[in-house]
Design a protein around this nucleic acid. Structure first.
Length: 193
DNA sequence: TACACGATTTACT
DNA sequence: GTAAATCGTGTAT
Protein backbone atom coordinates (compact mmCIF):
# COMPACT_ATOMS: atom_id res chain seq x y z
CA UNK A 1 0.00 0.00 0.00
CA UNK A 2 1.36 3.36 -1.05
CA UNK A 3 1.47 5.82 1.86
CA UNK A 4 -1.00 8.59 1.09
CA UNK A 5 -0.39 12.29 1.45
CA UNK A 6 -2.72 12.36 4.45
CA UNK A 7 -0.17 10.46 6.49
CA UNK A 8 2.30 13.32 6.08
CA UNK A 9 -0.13 15.99 7.21
CA UNK A 10 0.06 15.21 10.92
CA UNK A 11 1.83 17.83 12.99
CA UNK A 12 3.85 15.51 15.22
CA UNK A 13 6.91 15.41 12.99
CA UNK A 14 8.91 13.41 15.55
CA UNK A 15 6.53 10.46 15.71
CA UNK A 16 6.11 10.69 11.96
CA UNK A 17 9.87 10.33 11.50
CA UNK A 18 9.69 7.33 13.81
CA UNK A 19 6.78 5.79 11.91
CA UNK A 20 8.72 5.84 8.64
CA UNK A 21 11.34 3.45 9.99
CA UNK A 22 10.61 0.05 8.48
CA UNK A 23 8.54 1.45 5.60
CA UNK A 24 9.87 1.14 2.06
CA UNK A 25 10.96 3.98 -0.18
CA UNK A 26 10.70 3.62 -3.94
CA UNK A 27 12.09 5.57 -6.86
CA UNK A 28 11.50 5.20 -10.58
CA UNK A 29 13.93 7.64 -12.18
CA UNK A 30 15.56 7.50 -15.61
CA UNK A 31 13.88 4.18 -16.26
CA UNK A 32 15.45 2.57 -13.19
CA UNK A 33 13.26 1.22 -10.42
CA UNK A 34 14.84 1.02 -6.97
CA UNK A 35 13.39 0.28 -3.57
CA UNK A 36 14.72 -0.08 -0.05
CA UNK A 37 13.61 -0.31 3.55
CA UNK A 38 14.04 2.89 5.55
CA UNK A 39 16.42 2.41 8.48
CA UNK A 40 17.33 5.96 9.48
CA UNK A 41 15.42 9.25 9.70
CA UNK A 42 15.64 12.59 11.47
CA UNK A 43 12.88 15.05 12.40
CA UNK A 44 13.25 18.78 11.80
CA UNK A 45 10.69 20.69 13.79
CA UNK A 46 10.03 23.88 11.86
CA UNK A 47 10.63 27.39 13.14
CA UNK A 48 11.49 26.45 16.73
CA UNK A 49 14.28 24.04 15.79
CA UNK A 50 17.69 25.63 15.42
CA UNK A 51 18.87 22.75 13.25
CA UNK A 52 16.09 23.37 10.73
CA UNK A 53 16.55 25.56 7.68
CA UNK A 54 13.26 27.18 8.59
CA UNK A 55 14.41 28.13 12.10
CA UNK A 56 13.15 31.55 13.15
CA UNK A 57 10.52 31.49 10.39
CA UNK A 58 13.21 32.01 7.78
CA UNK A 59 11.12 31.85 4.65
CA UNK A 60 13.30 32.09 1.54
CA UNK A 61 13.26 30.75 -2.00
CA UNK A 62 14.88 27.56 -0.75
CA UNK A 63 12.76 26.94 2.34
CA UNK A 64 9.48 27.93 0.69
CA UNK A 65 8.91 24.26 -0.11
CA UNK A 66 8.92 23.37 3.58
CA UNK A 67 6.00 25.68 4.20
CA UNK A 68 3.79 23.87 1.76
CA UNK A 69 1.30 21.16 2.61
CA UNK A 70 2.94 17.83 3.58
CA UNK A 71 3.67 14.91 1.29
CA UNK A 72 6.15 16.53 -1.07
CA UNK A 73 9.92 16.32 -1.45
CA UNK A 74 12.40 18.89 -0.17
CA UNK A 75 15.73 18.21 -1.85
CA UNK A 76 18.63 20.25 -0.59
CA UNK A 77 22.11 20.65 -2.06
CA UNK A 78 24.99 20.72 0.42
CA UNK A 79 28.79 20.71 0.66
CA UNK A 80 28.95 21.63 -3.01
CA UNK A 81 28.43 18.04 -4.08
CA UNK A 82 25.69 16.25 -2.17
CA UNK A 83 21.94 16.12 -2.33
CA UNK A 84 19.82 15.43 0.75
CA UNK A 85 16.26 14.19 0.61
CA UNK A 86 13.51 15.30 3.00
CA UNK A 87 9.79 14.71 3.25
CA UNK A 88 7.82 17.87 3.93
CA UNK A 89 5.20 17.25 6.60
CA UNK A 90 2.32 18.95 8.44
CA UNK A 91 -0.25 21.37 7.04
CA UNK A 92 0.60 24.33 4.82
CA UNK A 93 2.33 27.09 6.77
CA UNK A 94 4.14 24.71 9.15
CA UNK A 95 7.68 24.03 7.83
CA UNK A 96 8.27 20.61 9.37
CA UNK A 97 10.33 18.01 7.54
CA UNK A 98 11.81 14.53 7.93
CA UNK A 99 15.28 13.84 6.61
CA UNK A 100 15.67 10.34 5.20
CA UNK A 101 19.19 9.41 6.23
CA UNK A 102 19.50 5.79 5.24
CA UNK A 103 17.88 2.73 3.75
CA UNK A 104 18.69 -0.87 3.02
CA UNK A 105 18.32 -1.82 -0.68
CA UNK A 106 15.70 -4.43 -1.55
CA UNK A 107 15.16 -3.99 -5.30
CA UNK A 108 17.40 -2.53 -8.01
CA UNK A 109 20.73 -2.96 -6.25
CA UNK A 110 22.46 -3.10 -9.63
CA UNK A 111 21.06 0.28 -10.67
CA UNK A 112 22.10 1.75 -7.35
CA UNK A 113 25.58 0.32 -7.67
CA UNK A 114 25.79 1.77 -11.16
CA UNK A 115 24.84 5.24 -9.93
CA UNK A 116 27.32 5.07 -7.08
CA UNK A 117 29.96 4.19 -9.62
CA UNK A 118 31.52 0.78 -9.32
CA UNK A 119 32.07 -1.65 -6.53
CA UNK A 120 30.02 -0.86 -3.44
CA UNK A 121 28.68 -3.35 -0.90
CA UNK A 122 24.88 -3.57 -0.92
CA UNK A 123 24.67 -2.50 2.71
CA UNK A 124 26.73 0.61 1.91
CA UNK A 125 24.71 1.72 -1.11
CA UNK A 126 22.37 4.03 0.80
CA UNK A 127 23.53 4.06 4.42
CA UNK A 128 23.89 7.85 4.51
CA UNK A 129 21.77 10.81 3.37
CA UNK A 130 23.94 11.73 0.39
CA UNK A 131 24.59 8.12 -0.58
CA UNK A 132 20.86 7.55 -0.53
CA UNK A 133 20.05 10.33 -2.98
CA UNK A 134 22.89 9.35 -5.26
CA UNK A 135 21.97 5.67 -5.40
CA UNK A 136 18.26 6.39 -5.80
CA UNK A 137 18.90 8.97 -8.52
CA UNK A 138 17.40 11.88 -6.60
CA UNK A 139 18.55 15.41 -7.54
CA UNK A 140 17.38 19.01 -7.20
CA UNK A 141 15.07 18.31 -10.12
CA UNK A 142 12.94 16.31 -7.71
CA UNK A 143 12.50 19.21 -5.31
CA UNK A 144 8.81 19.93 -4.66
CA UNK A 145 7.89 16.57 -6.17
CA UNK A 146 4.64 15.08 -4.91
CA UNK A 147 5.32 11.81 -3.04
CA UNK A 148 2.08 10.09 -4.00
CA UNK A 149 3.04 9.90 -7.67
CA UNK A 150 5.05 7.32 -9.62
CA UNK A 151 8.55 8.82 -9.35
CA UNK A 152 9.23 8.72 -5.62
CA UNK A 153 6.85 7.15 -3.16
CA UNK A 154 6.60 5.23 0.13
CA UNK A 155 4.83 2.03 1.10
CA UNK A 156 3.94 0.77 4.54
CA UNK A 157 3.45 -2.91 3.81
CA UNK A 158 7.15 -3.50 4.13
CA UNK A 159 8.85 -6.80 4.89
CA UNK A 160 9.26 -7.17 8.63
CA UNK A 161 13.02 -6.75 8.83
CA UNK A 162 13.31 -4.27 11.68
CA UNK A 163 14.36 -5.90 14.91
CA UNK A 164 14.76 -2.86 17.08
CA UNK A 165 14.23 0.89 16.92
CA UNK A 166 16.57 3.25 18.73
CA UNK A 167 16.68 7.04 18.97
CA UNK A 168 19.40 9.57 19.66
CA UNK A 169 20.76 13.03 18.86
CA UNK A 170 20.96 14.17 15.26
CA UNK A 171 24.13 14.14 13.20
CA UNK A 172 26.20 16.99 11.79
CA UNK A 173 24.27 19.84 13.37
CA UNK A 174 26.58 20.86 16.23
CA UNK A 175 25.87 24.49 15.36
CA UNK A 176 22.31 24.04 16.65
CA UNK A 177 23.25 24.45 20.32
CA UNK A 178 20.78 22.87 22.74
CA UNK A 179 18.63 21.62 19.88
CA UNK A 180 21.52 19.46 18.68
CA UNK A 181 20.90 17.24 21.71
CA UNK A 182 17.25 16.47 21.01
CA UNK A 183 16.58 12.75 20.34
CA UNK A 184 15.11 13.42 16.90
CA UNK A 185 17.11 10.74 15.12
CA UNK A 186 15.70 7.25 14.63
CA UNK A 187 17.57 4.16 13.55
CA UNK A 188 16.08 0.77 12.76
CA UNK A 189 18.25 -2.27 13.45
CA UNK A 190 17.76 -4.98 10.83
CA UNK A 191 17.16 -8.59 11.84
CA UNK A 192 19.86 -9.85 9.56
CA UNK A 193 22.73 -7.95 8.04
C1' DT B 1 27.49 41.91 -6.12
C1' DA B 2 30.75 39.62 -2.72
C1' DC B 3 31.83 36.10 0.64
C1' DA B 4 31.61 32.38 4.03
C1' DC B 5 29.80 27.95 4.96
C1' DG B 6 27.12 23.42 5.21
C1' DA B 7 21.13 17.68 7.26
C1' DT B 8 28.57 14.78 3.88
C1' DT B 9 31.58 11.42 1.63
C1' DT B 10 35.81 9.81 0.16
C1' DA B 11 40.52 9.43 -0.27
C1' DC B 12 44.76 9.93 1.73
C1' DT B 13 48.47 10.28 5.58
C1' DG C 1 42.72 10.56 12.06
C1' DT C 2 42.63 14.50 8.91
C1' DA C 3 41.58 17.00 4.72
C1' DA C 4 39.93 17.97 0.20
C1' DA C 5 36.17 18.32 -3.00
C1' DT C 6 32.89 22.10 -4.63
C1' DC C 7 28.54 25.29 -5.32
C1' DG C 8 23.84 27.00 -4.02
C1' DT C 9 22.09 29.72 -0.46
C1' DG C 10 21.85 33.20 3.09
C1' DT C 11 23.59 37.27 4.96
C1' DA C 12 26.33 41.07 4.72
C1' DT C 13 28.16 44.95 1.63
Amino acid sequence: MKISKDHFLQEDVVSLAKSLIGCTMHSFIDGMYCCGIIVETEAYAGITDRASHAYGDRKTARTEVMYRSGGIAYVYFSYGMHHLFNVVTAAAGIPHAVLIRGLFPLVGEDFMKQRRGGKVAVADLANGPAKLTKSMGITLKNNCLSLDGDVIWFENEAPNLINKLVSGPRIGIDYAGEDALLPYRFVGILNKS
